[in-house]
Design a protein around this nucleic acid. Structure first.
Length: 487
RNA sequence: GGUCUCGUAGCCAAGUGGUUAGGCACCGGUCUGCAAAACCGUCUACAGCGGUUCGAAUCCGCUCGAGACCUCCA
């Protein structure tokens, strides 16, 4: 346990702040989840992996964390023109399916992908459609406090009125005057009093397929609202950490703050965290721009951008080599580099497991361990942690070569902390080799035996032929001091 | 157009007033029949110009370049 030194960059203040949870030893964390109208792409995954890292480190520090990440299954409009259509409805019509079939299909995909990336599941994964009552009640609170108005069966948030009581634009650093000056005049905004106002509840036309009854008529909830309603329900009126992608800062998170303040009179969140984008060819990865890569394409290598497939753990390690607040550029070359580094780290951990303790230590294990914590305490600086882990790798190699040594307690500490940081905090795990069946093992024993005989007789042409032939079959032969091995 | 962020060696990427980041590649070496793998070593950069400072990649200004948000987005 080493609580009390963690600093988090808070978007609200623009500074790294010492993290102090509302309730000692407990942390409430909410992260905006995906809208399940399509397959999650790699950029989406980066955000969730970034917050998985934060979640894991908080757990590692000994906090009891309630991690809530929603599934948006309604209310996310195609555009903000308010005549925009719900993303899920569009997909449902196109594929001639029930909206909930779309939701189910892509939720399952999302879970499979997150699982492949070894991301821990959240403690609660609420859906918007499962919390309509909470959303309606939330709107009623805002209406009661006078920060919203009803118009033609819809309810809108009154941004200008709110701005007189609370600052609007604090999170994204925007001034309401600038926003008004720059907002576009869109068609179909007759219901709204001002362009900046956003929908809390929208009335539904007859042909609309996803709709529910409400005090204002048949309709559906606004996108910004669900996160306020669900985070409030499970984490309270004010909670510790709210995360999401950088692109949600405005307007989504700004609106969440406004909704929270308008409903309860207090700021809903203490620490706002924003994960940066994954870029492809220097541009933000995004579905709508057609600039995205799907995880399964990456794993299989079936994409023109890739030379080969990559294991999910390699991709995760690749992401851990960049700070969550920096953009990360995706290239096949960068991923290949990460693959080698990842294997080096994993090999070193295997070696660490078999090191024999000595009478004395020539390495200061405690300062190595401190460097791990220092890195992560500094706003979850995973790339610095990785660099420090490679320092440890260097030391482990020196021990293997007999240049350095560790006594029992130090060795145990190093094993404990390295495994803790690599497996629990970074969330990496060894790549499972395809297990060979018994018959192959028997055949390989025979072949390796024959090759060893050939080598003993200096029959290099035979031994090389066996080695090359096996390589073609995808089996690598390694000649080591104590004999050859294969995998 | 407005707001903001970034520009670090061949590539990816930390750092953010003074001390080697790290990974990959390259090159040299150890090992090896040869190779592969592994290990060791080497390479030592901060877009440009100007300013502040004893000292700047780090702070300030300007220029150039890239990106994000302002419209759905993780």
């Amino acid at each position: 346990m080493r609580k009390g030194r963690l600093t988090i960059y808070n978007t609200l203040s623009g500074n790294k702040e010492l993290f102090c949870s509302i309730n000692k030893d407990f942390v409430g964390m909410y992260v905006c989840g995906p809208t399940v109208y399509n397959y999650v792409h790699l950029g989406n995954c980066r955000t969730f992996i970034s917050f998985d890292l934060a979640y894991r480190y908080l757990l590692h520090l000994g906090y009891q964390v309630r991690y809530v990440r929603n599934i948006t299954d309604v209310g996310h409009l195609e555009s903000d023109a308010d005549e925009g259509e719900d993303k899920i409805s569009i997909k449902a019509r196109l594929e001639k399916l029930e909206p909930m079939e779309i939701v189910q299909q892509y939720t399952i995909d999302f879970h499979q992908v997150m699982n492949a990336f070894n991301a821990l599941p959240p403690n609660i994964e609420p859906t918007a459609t499962g919390h309509l009552i909470e959303q309606i009640e939330f709107i009623q609170s805002i209406l009661k406090n006078g920060f919203a108005y009803e118009s033609n069966g819809s309810v809108y948030f009154d941004v200008e009125k709110y701005n007189k009581a609370f600052p609007y634009g604090e999170l994204s650093g925007r001034k309401i005057e600038d926003l008004i000056a720059n907002s576009r005049a869109l068609d179909g905004q007759n219901e709204k009093r001002a362009p900046l106002d956003f929908a809390l509840w929208k009335n539904a036309s007859a042909e609309h397929i996803m709709k529910w009854p409400s005090p204002w008529g048949i309709g559906f909830p606004g996108w910004h609202l669900e996160c306020s309603a669900m985070s409030g329900k499970y984490l309270g009126e004010t909670f510790d950490i709210h995360g999401g992608g950088m692109d949600l800062k405005f307007p989504h998170h700004e609106c969440e703050i406004a909704q929270g303040c308008a409903a309860t009179g207090q700021k809903p969140v203490n620490y706002w965290m924003h994960a940066n984008m994954l870029t492809l060819n220097g541009k933000k990865m995004s579905k709508s721009a057609g600039n995205s890569l799907l995880p399964n394409e990456l794993f299989s290598g079936e994409n023109n951008l890739l030379n080969k497939g990559f294991d999910p753990m390699v991709v995760r390690f690749f992401m851990m080599q960049a700070h969550y607040r920096s953009t990360l550029d995706f290239t096949s070359d960068a991923l290949s580099a990460a693959e080698k580094g990842f294997k080096k780290l994993m090999l070193s951990l295997e070696n660490l497991a078999v090191i024999v303790p000595s009478d004395q230590s020539t390495i200061e294990v405690s300062s190595l361990v401190d460097s791990f914590y220092d890195a992560m305490d500094d706003d979850f600086n995973a790339p610095a942690l990785v660099a420090n882990l490679f320092e440890a790798v260097k030391q482990i190699n020196a021990i293997l070569e007999g240049k350095e040594s560790l006594k029992k307690e130090d060795l145990a500490l190093l094993k404990d902390e390295m495994c803790g940081f690599v497996f629990e905090v970074l969330g990496l795990k060894p790549i499972l080799e395809k297990s060979a069946d018994n018959r192959l093992v028997g055949v390989m024993d025979l072949i390796m035996d024959l090759r060893t005989s050939a080598r003993e007789n200096k029959d290099w042409s035979t031994s090389d032929k066996i080695r090359d032939g096996l390589l073609n079959a995808g089996i690598h032969v390694k000649d080591e001091k104590n004999g050859a091995s294969w995998k």
